[in-house]
């Protein structure tokens, strides 16, 4: 089942991402509030909860798509060390989001350029950070397409000609091509049938382990976090109600809502 990686390698100095007292309100309503956690290098954090519990709001605040009302999101940058991404300048934040960060959308159409070929989609981030050699960009794209199990001859096809599962894999390739250290995933397996889901999860698990990625995965599918996540946060009404190791939370849920969530999973 879940592979327990050591949350803190001996040599690593500190967490990759520190979240402190994060809050986002929509008017008087709460999007998410009082969220704090640390994410260490190589660790995968799952966030589960029902629809409207603030999972996606939280993820968008972490990834800089939404501006939180208060709190800190401190990321350990390569050059300047730990920086608060909420207060850093927009150029730096956008630079982070195309180098060290990746964001996998639930709907691949949100994360892909549908009018641009698969190769162009994978190459975009390379070109955004200054790659100007067509041959090299294409080699990179081919390499990444093979890593996500897309045939090389599909490189010049547009994503609209791909199946849903292939589109999602293409989106992952496009995000990981610049070697990010932190991946945000919003329901990466949503809308896929179970056999395609299983292959995608297998692929994701392999990539995360091999590249030593840290990831924050938002999902309502407990099987996904069981397979991928080292640690788990359960959210309800914008608040974290329970947090801990994945197996511990899922096998011995303490909070009433978590117990309800775990017992709601259909047993086949």
């Amino acid at each position: 089942m879940t592979l327990h990686s050591t949350p803190k390698p001996q040599t690593a100095p500190g967490p990759l991402l520190q979240v402190r007292g994060l809050e986002k309100r929509y008017g008087s309503r709460i999007g998410c509030t009082d969220v704090s956690f640390d994410l260490f290098p190589g660790e995968v954090m799952g966030i589960v909860g029902e629809s409207g519990s603030g999972k996606s709001t939280l993820l968008n605040c972490l990834a800089g798509h939404l501006t939180p009302d208060c709190g800190q999101v401190i990321f350990d940058t390569r050059t300047a060390g730990p920086c608060d991404t909420v207060t850093m300048g927009e150029p730096e934040r956008r630079m982070l989001s195309r180098t060290d960060w990746a964001f996998v959308h639930q709907n691949p159409r949100d994360g892909l350029r549908m009018g641009v070929s698969a190769g162009g989609n994978v190459g975009e981030r390379l070109m955004a950070v200054g790659a100007r050699h067509y041959g090299n960009i294409r080699d990179h794209a081919l390499d990444w397409l093979s890593r996500v199990e897309i045939a090389a001859e599909r490189i010049d096809d547009r994503p609209s000609a791909f199946s849903g599962g292939m589109q999602q894999r293409l989106q992952i390739a496009r995000n990981l091509v610049t070697g990010p250290r932190l991946v945000f995933m919003d329901e990466p397996t949503g809308g896929l049938d179970v056999s395609v889901q299983a292959r995608l999860l297998d692929l994701l698990r392999g990539l995360v382990r091999r590249m030593g990625l840290s990831a924050v995965i938002v999902t309502h599918d407990l099987a996904v976090v069981r397979l991928l996540a080292d640690r788990l946060m359960v959210m309800k009404d914008g608040r974290v109600v329970e947090a801990g190791l994945t197996d511990q939370v899922l096998d011995d849920p303490q909070h009433g809502y978590t117990q309800l969530l775990v017992s709601s999973v259909l047993q086949v």
Partner: peptide, 16 residues
């Protein structure tokens, strides 16, 4: 912000 990578995506598509 001088983010012009996208312009090269267009040229990439041409060559592809």
């Amino acid at each position: 912000l001088e983010e012009y990578g996208l312009m090269h995506v267009r040229l990439y598509e041409d060559i592809a």
